[in-house]
Amino acid sequence: KCPLCELMFPPNYDQSKFEEHVESHW
């Protein structure tokens, strides 16, 4: 789950994509 927007991600979600998403909040 994204700590900034509460959006849920699947357990096998690509880590780099997840980090990209988190950085999109900044």
Results as ranks from 00 to 15, higher is better:
residue 1 K to T: 10
residue 14 D to A: 08
residue 7 L to S: 15
residue 11 P to Q: 07
residue 6 E to I: 01
residue 2 C to E: 03
residue 25 H to N: 01
residue 22 V to T: 09
residue 15 Q to W: 03
residue 12 N to D: 14
residue 25 H to P: 01
residue 4 L to V: 12
residue 21 H to M: 00
residue 25 H to K: 00
residue 18 F to A: 07
residue 13 Y to Q: 13
residue 21 H to Q: 00
residue 19 E to K: 11
residue 16 S to G: 10
residue 4 L to P: 02
residue 3 P to E: 10
residue 8 M to E: 14
residue 8 M to D: 15
residue 10 P to N: 05
residue 7 L to G: 08
residue 14 D to G: 05
residue 6 E to L: 05
residue 11 P to H: 06
residue 16 S to M: 07
residue 4 L to D: 15
residue 23 E to I: 04
residue 23 E to V: 03
residue 8 M to V: 14
residue 3 P to L: 04
residue 24 S to M: 07
residue 22 V to K: 15
residue 17 K to E: 03
residue 26 W to I: 12
residue 11 P to R: 06
residue 26 W to A: 15
residue 21 H to L: 00
residue 13 Y to V: 10
residue 22 V to N: 07
residue 16 S to W: 02
residue 4 L to M: 13
residue 23 E to A: 11
residue 7 L to H: 13
residue 12 N to S: 08
residue 25 H to Y: 01
residue 18 F to Q: 14
residue 22 V to D: 12
residue 23 E to T: 11
residue 15 Q to I: 13
residue 11 P to N: 14
residue 22 V to L: 05
residue 12 N to M: 03
residue 14 D to M: 10
residue 18 F to S: 12
residue 2 C to N: 08
residue 7 L to T: 14
residue 6 E to F: 07
residue 3 P to S: 13
residue 3 P to D: 07
residue 10 P to L: 03
residue 8 M to L: 04
residue 25 H to M: 00
residue 16 S to L: 09
residue 7 L to K: 06
residue 24 S to D: 04
residue 7 L to Q: 15
residue 21 H to N: 01
residue 23 E to G: 05
residue 26 W to H: 14
residue 22 V to M: 12
residue 2 C to Y: 04
residue 25 H to F: 00
residue 14 D to Y: 05
residue 17 K to D: 07
residue 9 F to Q: 02
residue 6 E to R: 06
residue 13 Y to R: 05
residue 18 F to I: 12
residue 5 C to N: 03
residue 17 K to R: 11
residue 16 S to K: 14
residue 9 F to D: 12
residue 7 L to W: 08
residue 21 H to A: 00
residue 21 H to F: 00
residue 2 C to P: 06
residue 23 E to W: 03
residue 21 H to R: 00
residue 14 D to I: 08
residue 10 P to F: 05
residue 15 Q to N: 13
residue 12 N to H: 06
residue 2 C to Q: 01
residue 17 K to V: 05
residue 7 L to I: 13
residue 9 F to H: 10
residue 23 E to H: 12
residue 10 P to Y: 02
residue 17 K to Q: 11
residue 15 Q to V: 10
residue 1 K to G: 09
residue 24 S to W: 06
residue 23 E to N: 12
residue 4 L to G: 14
residue 15 Q to D: 03
residue 22 V to P: 02
residue 24 S to E: 10
residue 3 P to H: 15
residue 10 P to I: 09
residue 9 F to I: 08
residue 10 P to S: 07
residue 22 V to A: 12
residue 2 C to R: 01
residue 11 P to C: 03
residue 10 P to K: 01
residue 22 V to F: 04
residue 10 P to C: 05
residue 7 L to F: 11
residue 15 Q to R: 13
residue 20 E to V: 09
residue 12 N to K: 13
residue 6 E to T: 05
residue 25 H to L: 01
residue 21 H to S: 00
residue 23 E to R: 14
residue 18 F to G: 04
residue 17 K to N: 05
residue 21 H to V: 01
residue 19 E to Q: 11
residue 24 S to Q: 06
residue 3 P to M: 14
residue 1 K to S: 11
residue 26 W to N: 15
residue 2 C to W: 01
residue 13 Y to I: 15
residue 12 N to R: 09
residue 15 Q to F: 10
residue 26 W to Q: 15
residue 16 S to F: 13
residue 11 P to G: 05
residue 18 F to T: 10
residue 1 K to M: 07
residue 4 L to E: 15
residue 25 H to T: 03
residue 1 K to A: 04
residue 1 K to D: 07
residue 23 E to P: 02
residue 10 P to Q: 09
residue 1 K to V: 12
residue 2 C to V: 03
residue 5 C to V: 00
residue 21 H to Y: 00
residue 7 L to A: 11
residue 18 F to R: 13
residue 4 L to H: 15
residue 1 K to F: 08
residue 4 L to C: 07
residue 8 M to H: 05
residue 12 N to L: 09
residue 4 L to R: 14
residue 4 L to W: 11
residue 26 W to G: 15
residue 16 S to Y: 10
residue 6 E to S: 07
residue 4 L to N: 15
residue 15 Q to C: 12
residue 26 W to S: 15
residue 13 Y to S: 10
residue 14 D to V: 11
residue 20 E to P: 05
residue 14 D to E: 08
residue 17 K to A: 12
residue 1 K to Q: 05
residue 20 E to F: 04
residue 17 K to H: 06
residue 16 S to A: 06
residue 8 M to C: 02
residue 24 S to C: 06
residue 2 C to H: 02
residue 13 Y to P: 08
residue 6 E to N: 01
residue 14 D to P: 05
residue 12 N to T: 07
residue 16 S to R: 08
residue 11 P to W: 00
residue 7 L to D: 04
residue 6 E to P: 07
residue 12 N to V: 09
residue 8 M to F: 09
residue 20 E to T: 10
residue 3 P to W: 02
residue 9 F to P: 02
residue 5 C to D: 00
residue 2 C to M: 02
residue 19 E to C: 03
residue 8 M to S: 09
residue 13 Y to G: 12
residue 13 Y to F: 12
residue 7 L to P: 03
residue 8 M to N: 13
residue 22 V to S: 05
residue 1 K to L: 10
residue 11 P to Y: 07
residue 10 P to M: 01
residue 21 H to P: 01
residue 14 D to F: 01
residue 18 F to N: 09
residue 12 N to Q: 08
residue 15 Q to K: 09
residue 23 E to Y: 03
residue 11 P to S: 14
residue 24 S to R: 11
residue 17 K to T: 13
residue 8 M to Y: 07
residue 3 P to T: 15
residue 2 C to G: 00
residue 22 V to H: 02
residue 26 W to T: 15
residue 18 F to L: 08
residue 25 H to C: 10
residue 26 W to E: 15
residue 17 K to Y: 12
residue 9 F to G: 04
residue 17 K to S: 09
residue 6 E to H: 00
residue 16 S to H: 12
residue 3 P to N: 08
residue 26 W to P: 15
residue 16 S to N: 13
residue 13 Y to E: 08
residue 12 N to F: 04
residue 5 C to Y: 01
residue 24 S to Y: 06
residue 17 K to W: 06
residue 10 P to G: 04
residue 11 P to D: 13
residue 9 F to M: 14
residue 18 F to V: 09
residue 23 E to F: 04
residue 20 E to A: 11
residue 23 E to K: 14
residue 26 W to R: 15
residue 12 N to G: 11
